[in-house]
């Protein structure tokens, strides 16, 4: 019974807290620009409104157009449920669950790109092509980061693989994971979440034709994914397993908030990258993950 309560509490935390992060990011951006900005809870209002609305779908779309966002949402939530939260171990934990997490995110990506291809729009096809292409480099970076953690901790289970890294490795890994976070969540400098009508965007263009509850699922799933990466980054870098439970949870929350602020600052202070430079930056992110791997591995030889 306690497992059941634990799982539900954890899921509720993910579902309810995740839409805060985009609000925080937008607030930071508004603050840097000297504007008032939308309220921190804006995404909650949006979701509630979308949930009540009807759906308009393309005449070309198959039933998959509605099913795909639902499956993608479940996949992202499932991936989030696998992550331990600081000292509190995940309800499900086994050797190799970290790979399940990576591939659940891939399942979500498959569904989103599928939904984009449904409409037969060249615009959305372009977005899907970019999403799946850049995801290759991001995935290479994630696997490298996971290898670093596995070599450091000697474990491939999420509940025990977040062992404190030595300082330089942790710093490098933090930068690498942050770059991957920006790419995977379609933030500046890879993509601009504010625009709807530019040829250079990725994620927003894939969901152009979605509306109503499926769009709400997509937006909510995107916020959960952002929080998932932030939590992963925080746990990979900070020695959270060495402090008491309450303290570590507070630290984790603070770290996730800091990541959101950092995303907002990057978004305010840098311009979006030229498109052909995107692979270059992702490769840099991969290298930032590779060096800690080499450091950890060579350090023990």
């Amino acid at each position: 019974m306690s497992v059941f309560i634990d799982t539900s509490l954890r899921l509720l935390a993910w579902l309810i807290l995740a839409p805060l992060l985009p609000g925080v990011i937008n607030k930071v951006k508004a603050w840097v620009a000297g504007r008032q900005g939308p309220p921190v809870l804006q995404l909650y209002y949006d979701l509630a409104r979308l949930w009540r609305k009807g759906v308009v779908i393309s005449t070309l779309a198959s039933p998959g157009f509605i099913i795909a966002p639902a499956v993608a949402w479940v996949a992202v939530i499932g991936a989030a449920a696998l992550l331990p939260l600081a000292g509190a171990d995940a309800p499900v934990s086994f050797d190799g669950d970290v790979l399940l997490l990576v591939y659940l995110l891939a399942l979500a990506r498959f569904c989103t790109a599928w939904g984009a291809m449904e409409t037969g729009s060249a615009f959305e096809g372009m977005g899907a092509a970019r999403e799946v292409s850049y995801a290759i480099l991001a995935e290479v970076g994630i696997i490298t980061a996971i290898l670093t953690l596995a070599v450091q901790s000697g474990s491939i289970s999420l509940s025990s693989m977040f062992e404190p890294l030595p300082g330089p490795s942790a710093a490098l890994l933090a930068v690498g994971l942050f770059i991957i976070l920006l790419a995977e969540n379609c933030r500046v400098p890879f993509d601009d979440p504010n625009t709807h009508l530019e040829l250079t965007m990725i994620h927003e263009v894939m969901v152009l034709d979605h509306s109503g509850p499926p769009l709400a699922m997509i937006l909510h799933g995107a916020s959960v994914k952002l929080m998932l990466f932030a939590v992963f980054l925080a746990q990979a870098v900070l020695p959270l397993s060495e402090v008491p439970l309450v303290m570590s949870l507070a630290l984790l929350a603070l770290a996730v908030l800091l990541v959101a602020v950092a995303v907002g600052l990057v978004e305010s202070l840098t311009a979006r990258l030229a498109f052909r430079r995107v692979p270059l930056l992702l490769t840099i992110g991969f290298l930032f993950c590779l060096f800690p791997l080499l450091l950890t591995w060579m350090g023990e030889i």
Binding site: I57, S58, S121, F123
Partner: peptide
């Protein structure tokens, strides 16, 4: 509550 329409495609 589902309606069908041509692909929006940014109004093309």
């Amino acid at each position: 509550r589902t309606a069908r329409a041509v692909t929006w495609d940014c109004g093309y």
